[in-house]
């Protein structure tokens, strides 16, 4: 059967509480699918590539709408984001922009205005697309994901969550409830911090052929104190590259260091080829983009005094 465009029939539930949503998931198991914004799921359902018997709408659950910045004055804290927070809300929120500048830079790359008005932070992560910008950011920042089901709450690092294209560690009865993004800050005001997000897509708003991002801390001499970076679209899952980041610590980010980091990143990449980009092209883009985000993050750090 060649796909057409109307979804197969399904039953719909809009639970009032997260507990109720989890009960429905427990009851229907793999026959049920959660929907929040639905910006990726609904097209797949239209083509019947996804055909849940039950659709459980969690878009309005107040328990998934929270945004909490770490308390002032604390050193590294976490920024807590309810999985149901819409991308547009995150994009506009001044606390989020201040605490998570990398996510702020990633969000404009996600789809278009209309899709960001519906799409959620958690939904994008749970969908499990290797080229998803939010998923990449969560991996690079080493975010912690909170999954809940009727038996309680479990945690899993974003870096362990993505298993294969569109396959994650979430169980059929689990709901992604919260994402906890580490916030980089320190009492030492001499530390400079910068980040960058770049991607190549054929048109703006398309899925990235490859995306890359980095976040850095530099000492006043420009020596790297901390670095995290990663690649999207360059492997079956979003790829955080902590080992490459570690290699930069202690170094000045000159062209040689940047080039070596990019080479190390590409060595860890494992892209697929498709209609729009061959595997070789993706590998090449990965190298170029890692270099660019490291340069841009360094530039960003130089232009902003740490807070």
């Amino acid at each position: 059967m060649m796909p057409l465009m109307k979804a197969a029939p399904f039953a719909y539930a809009r639970p009032e509480t997260l507990a109720e949503a989890c009960s429905l998931l427990a009851e229907h198991g793999p026959d049920a699918k959660l929907i929040a914004g639905g910006q990726s799921l609904v097209p797949m359902m239209a083509m019947r590539l996804a055909r849940p018997a039950w659709l459980i709408d969690i878009a309005r659950l107040a328990e998934l709408q929270h945004l909490a910045a770490p308390a002032e004055g604390k050193a590294d804290g976490v920024f807590v984001v309810g999985a149901g927070v819409r991308q547009c809300v995150m994009e506009r929120d001044p606390r989020a922009r201040a605490s998570l500048p990398l996510l702020a830079k990633a969000l404009p790359w996600v789809g278009h205005v209309q899709t960001r008005n519906r799409g959620t932070i958690g939904g994008s992560i749970a969908h499990g697309d290797t080229s998803a910008e939010i998923a990449l950011t969560a991996c690079v920042l080493d975010a912690m994901l909170e999954l809940c089901d009727t038996s309680g709450v479990t945690e899993i690092p974003a870096r362990e969550f993505f298993l294969a294209p569109m396959v994650t560690a979430i169980l059929p009865e689990q709901c992604l409830a919260e994402i906890r993004f580490p916030v980089w800050r320190s009492a030492d005001k001499t530390i400079r911090r910068g980040c960058a997000f770049e991607e190549v897509s054929v048109r703006h708003g398309d899925f990235a052929l490859v995306s890359a991002c980095a976040q850095l801390e530099l000492d006043p001499d420009g020596r790297c104190l901390r670095a995290e970076l990663g690649l999207g679209g360059a492997a079956p899952t979003p790829l955080a590259l902590p080992e490459v980041g570690a290699q930069l610590v202690g170094a000045k980010l000159d062209e040689q260091a940047i080039s070596a980091a990019a080479a190390a990143a590409v060595a860890l990449a494992d892209p697929e080829g498709d209609l729009h980009a061959s595997a070789d092209y993706r590998r090449h883009l990965a190298r170029v983009l890692v270099e660019r985000v490291l340069r841009a993050a360094q530039q960003d750090a130089r232009s902003t005094v740490g807070t």
Partner: peptide
């Protein structure tokens, strides 16, 4: 046909 949806048949937008 590999480009049978608007995800793969790429029509230029106001940004292109």
């Amino acid at each position: 046909l590999e480009s049978q949806s608007f995800m793969d048949y790429l029509i230029p937008s106001a940004l292109e």
